[in-house]
Every structure is written in structure tokens, then in C-alpha cells.
Design a protein around this nucleic acid. Structure first.
Lengths: 350, 350
DNA sequence: AATTTTCTTGTAAAGGATTACATTTGCCAT
DNA sequence: ATGGCAAATGTAATCCTTTACAAGAAAATT
């Protein structure tokens, strides 16, 4: 009574390789060879072993194996925040690649907290992961150093400053922002605003720089009154857009540093009864799944997170095999045009 | 040349407990006792040991420990689809609870594929996880049986049929849908539609039933022409809404079986120039993060995923300790009112 | 048929921690 | 001082695989 389910009271067999060996009338060494597909076992014998394994429902003990071999076939994956819709696709891609190789992924998130980051790394080292992918915006160098000391290869994402010390999947922002700008110019916009992220963040700074140099290459400049800074979240985007809307000649198009802020900008526009894209064009960055769900569907610069994951994974594999990480090509975001961009409305002056 | 980073060519020390013991002038047993906080070690000695550990930068080998103890402090977490925004919050909550207990989570997704599900379970058993939380809509009973045979406790989510055989975190849909209905009735709606999920899915069926009995308890009935079935995704919700909008007296309010379909419904309304909430009220189910990002922000029935995770985790812990899973209380969703619901417009008849 | 050579298979030693049990040490009471 | 007892520490078996090496069996060579 009080039980939510009837317990299947089954004895737990501790089936080890010795049982299998006995049943198949061979030694444990032979069983091991069969399991691992090593050569030098007669067909007839390996058949017998396989049958014994099946009959006994034997499952090898990964701990013993890892202990002996010094490899766990476990990778660690650290992200900033799983609730941030940026990450699921990345995690998905990484985990799929790993699964295809029989590698398991233990995955944790730092919640943007350097102390938690340190802990994550330490826990992974204790777990003897074979390698760690760090997909966070913030890192903590001492933890990285510890991983290196422990002999665990690491790959980082988009950490320009540490690119000389650790393998790194870099993002080349220039193309994407150039495409966005070209698109807006082609539509006829000339008053183009920008919502940047906190300039303490390297990646936010680089996005802004990329947009600035895109402007420059078209003979334009960033104007302070058309530039606002947000917190990379919806709320910050809304506030930033409010600011841009309140200036006396507000821009007809706005590019944001990420989609969440673009969504915030959209909300601010709605609230101010500014119709998007009729009276205001918005371009986001990232191409989160939500981007296409919004109304209007958000035009955005897609950061191919599956590529990032693939590069990171390949890099780690290399490091494990070769002991040296090869250079990886920067990943290039590209513009995805949806419905949040249109020619500017003819206002006051035409 | 060709290298993306300078390799820190550091020797990898294989620091084992014996080194520590030597350095501290004690036996490995004592070191072990200090590490595990067991009683019966003199203060002076344990200080010496701790110092040695720190100096040598010793990290215990989890594999050896797990091998010996038969416990890994690893939990498995299986979800359907990490790209479905339903899951991140669940994963987050589960992982945080685990981390707080020094338990690692290996997590995989089935992509709604029973074969992959089977694989996931098998991989986790091989990894010697201490327990598995299955947070998928579809399960494969043979795999569950295997886990039980291997002595790995399992908890399922919302599998009414299997609730007698395996511990289960159930969702009680009735309250949530009743609240939604009451809300709509209070606003003055009487023509209320419903977008259901595929009736092959138990959870979808139960949601529909819950809504039906909510109607019944107010003397109302479900009308076939105001009911549509979608695929639980955005696209299906859009198609379903299209159908409802095309009937000659379309409903003034629609309740959907999940938020993704509510978003689809919203899109369909936009496309048909039906203003939400002025001419159509929509209520979703789940309360995904995107729900509040939409325009208008979606009223929805919140399924508290953090509670689901907490119950699942607690249940597994119990099972590990006590050998029997305690009954867990069903989780109750509640209505969250935002901006997609309003009194019906006075149309034709008033 | 005897001797090599080549395949198969077996034996036993790691691998690094935990822990039952044995032993030593330290302390107290006498 | 000395015996007794509790507390502290040590010894060695154990967890389950993998794998170097040894040994045995089969095939090939002469």
C-alpha cells in the first residue's frame, strides 16, 4: 500500500566476463577479444562466445574497461545556459556526432557563472572524460589549465583571446553583417540602427565591430543616436528599441546582436504601434528556432550551430588521436531573409 | 605551421592514491578514509593527507571507485527531442538537482524513435548509471524491462498505462483545462474550439478528455466542427486553425493541446487577418519560454516542468535507497493569463 | 615423419580505489 | 610500570576488463 507501482522483484545478476567464458568454454581473454572484435579468434569459437553472451544477457562493465584502458569514451560538454534557445541545436549536433562513435556526452551548464564553470571542469576531469568542449561565452583560464594538466583536450568556442593557447572554433562575423547591410541598402534603407550587446563581452564587441566595418565599406558610419546597448536578452532588446524609437529621427531599420534582442525590439515596436516591417525593418542574429515563429517571421543572420558543434567535435577527436589540435576554419554566419524586412515607408521627406 | 594553437606539452601525471599515501606517510586506506570523510582518522593525520592531496594535485579515479563500489553516481536522462523547447527547463531542473548531490547526468534524446530509445537505454545500462529518468512521450517496454533486469531503477513521465509497473510522474490535466474554460466563460465566450494532438498519443488523448469533461461539467459539449487535430508542432497548429477559421460559424476562442500548436494557430489567425485577442482568443498548453515572447503574449496552461523533474529525481533517489519507489503526487498544470485572451467581439448576433 | 611456422587460446598481471579484518598505537586506570 | 581498551592505521582481497606473454594446436614445409 502506498506504492505507486508494483515492484518487479527481480534478482540482479552480476554477469561478468568470467561467466561468459565458462559458458562458452573459453578463457576471459578470448571473450574479450570477441567483444572488441580483435582478430585471431576462430569463427567457430567466436560464435560460441557470442551465443553465450546473448544467452546470459551479458553487458560489459564500462568502469572496469575504462579503468584498464585509460579511456572512457566520455566527452564533456559545457554550455552557458540550456534555457537559452541558442544551445539546444548545438547540443543536439554534438551529441549526435558522439553517439555515432559510441561516445557518451555528459553535459552541464554554467549559468554564466565562472565559479560554476570551474566546478564543471573539475567534475569532468574527475569523471575522466576524454575531452571537453566548452561552448560558453565566458571561460575561466585556471580551469582550462587544470584540464590541460590532467591531459584532457579542450576546445573553446569563439574565444579570440585564447585562440593562441587552446583550440578554438571561431566565428567570422564580417560576412553575415555585410550581407545584412547589403540587404537593407538594397531595400532602400539608409538610416540603419544597431542594438549591441554589453561591450565587456568579447563576442558582443566583435559583432559591433563587424557591423561597423560593414558600414564603413559602404561609406557609412555608426551614429551614436542610432546605437543602443542591451543585455542580450528580450528585455534588453525592448529597452534598447524604446530608446531608438524615441530619438527625433529614428532609424528605418535596425540590426541587433542577437535574436532575443530582436524579439525585444519587435515587442517594443508593437507597443509603440510601429508596424514591422512596414515602418521598421529588423534583422536579428543567430537564427533561433523562435525567429521563424514570430510575427512577422524574423529575418536574421544565421549562425550555423551544427557546424560549430561539428568543428568542435572533430577538433577534439584530432586532439585525442594526434595529440595536437589542427586549426579549424572560422564558421561563417549568413543572412536568412524572412518577413521582418521591407523597403522603408516613404515618410516626411521622400 | 598549420597549427591553430601552441600545444602545452606537459607530461600527464597519473597520480594515484598510492603516491598520496607515500607522500603523507600513511597507507592508501587512510587516504581513502580522508577523501570519503570517514571517521577514525586523527586530525593531524588527515591534515597531512589533505596537504599531500593538494600538493600533488591528486584527483581520485572515478572509474576505479565506481568499479569497486558498484555505484557510479551517474544518472541517465532520456528526452524525446532537445530541440523541442519543452525540454530544456526539465533538463535544467533535473541536472541542477543532480549536481547538488554530486551526481552527473548523461543525457540523450530519442528523436521520437523507439529504436533510438532502446539504444539509449542500453547505452546507459552499459555505462552503469545508477538510475534512469525517461522523459519521453513514447517508450519501449522491452528496454524498460532490460533496465529492470539490470537492476537500474527507472522513472517515467506521464505514462498512465505503465503506471502500475514502473514509477511514474503523472500529470493531472483536469484542473488546468478547467481553469482555462472558466477563464474563457468568464470573458463571455461560449463558442470554444479545441485543437487536439494525434489521438494515438496517450497524453494527447488525455488532454482532449480533460477538456471535454471540463466542458461537460459546465453543461457544454465538444462540437466536431470546432475540433481539429494537429501534429503537436507549429505547422499542425496552423493547419488546424485554418480548418476552424473556415467553418461557417467559427469559434471565438480556441484551446490547444500545446503551445507550439497555439503558435501555429496564432500564425493562421494573423494570415487570415483575424486579430488576436480582439476577434479570437487563444489558450495554449505547456508555457514554453516562447509563449511570452509572442505577440500577443500567449495565455497558456503552465505545466510545471521543474516539478516534474523534481518528482522524477526524488523518485529515483528513493528507489536507489529503499529499493522501492514511493508513489508521487500527480503534477498539476495551472492557467497563466497573458494577452491572447479577451472578451469576444460582438459579432453578427450580439 | 619431423620440424618450422602460423594461428588460437590461455595465464596472469595490471589498472586505482574501497573495505573487512588484522595490527599497532595511544591513553587511561590501576 | 603495566594491563586493558579504544582509537588509529595498515594489509591485502576485491571489483571486472584488457593485454603482454606463454603455451598449445594446427598447418605448412622439408
Amino acid at each position: 500500500m502506498g506504492l505507486g507501482y508494483t515492484l518487479v522483484n527481480q534478482r540482479v545478476y552480476h554477469m561478468d566476463i568470467l561467466q561468459v567464458a565458462k559458458r562458452a568454454n573459453v578463457s576471459t581473454a578470448t571473450v574479450s577479444r570477441v567483444i572488441n572484435g580483435l582478430p585471431g579468434v576462430r569463427e567457430k569459437t567466436s560464435d560460441r562466445v557470442r551465443r553465450a553472451i546473448a544467452e546470459l544477457n551479458y553487458v560489459p562493465n564500462t568502469n572496469a574497461r575504462s579503468l584498464r584502458m585509460g579511456r572512457t569514451r566520455l566527452f564533456g560538454l559545457i554550455v552557458s545556459d540550456i534555457n537559452n534557445p541558442f544551445f539546444p541545436e548545438l547540443i543536439d549536433a554534438f551529441e549526435s556526432l558522439a553517439a555515432a562513435q559510441g561516445i557518451e556526452v555528459i553535459f552541464t551548464h554554467t549559468n554564466y557563472d565562472p565559479i560554476r564553470f570551474h566546478n564543471c571542469v573539475r567534475r569532468m576531469i574527475e569523471r575522466n572524460v576524454d575531452a571537453i568542449a566548452v561552448m560558453t561565452s565566458e571561460v575561466e583560464e585556471e580551469a582550462l589549465q587544470q584540464a590541460t594538466t590532467a591531459g584532457v583536450p579542450i576546445v573553446l568556442m569563439n574565444q579570440r583571446e585564447l585562440a593562441g593557447k587552446y583550440p578554438n572554433v571561431l566565428v567570422d562575423y564580417s560576412v553575415g553583417f555585410r550581407e545584412a547591410l547589403v540587404h537593407l541598402l538594397a531595400l532602400g534603407h539608409s538610416n540603419i540602427g544597431f542594438i549591441a550587446g554589453p561591450q565587456t563581452l568579447d563576442s558582443a564587441r566583435r559583432r559591433k565591430d563587424a557591423f561597423k566595418s560593414a558600414l564603413k565599406s559602404h561609406g557609412l558610419r555608426m551614429r551614436a543616436e542610432w546605437t543602443a546597448i542591451g543585455d542580450m536578452k528580450v528585455e534588453g532588446g525592448r529597452a534598447a528599441m524604446d530608446k531608438l524609437l524615441s530619438c527625433n529621427s529614428s532609424p528605418t531599420a535596425v540590426v541587433t546582436s542577437n535574436d532575443l534582442m530582436a524579439i525585444g525590439a519587435l515587442q517594443a515596436a508593437h507597443a509603440a504601434h510601429v508596424s514591422v516591417p512596414k515602418n521598421l525593418s529588423i534583422i536579428g542574429f543567430d537564427d533561433l528556432p523562435v525567429a521563424s515563429m514570430m510575427h512577422p517571421a524574423l529575418s536574421t543572420i544565421r549562425l550555423p550551430r551544427n557546424l560549430v558543434a561539428a568543428q568542435a567535435f572533430a577538433c577534439l577527436q584530432q586532439a585525442i588521436l594526434g595529440g595536437e589540435g589542427a586549426a579549424v576554419e572560422p564558421v561563417q554566419p549568413h543572412l536568412v531573409i524572412r518577413n521582418s524586412t521591407a523597403p522603408p515607408a516613404n515618410r516626411k521627406r521622400r
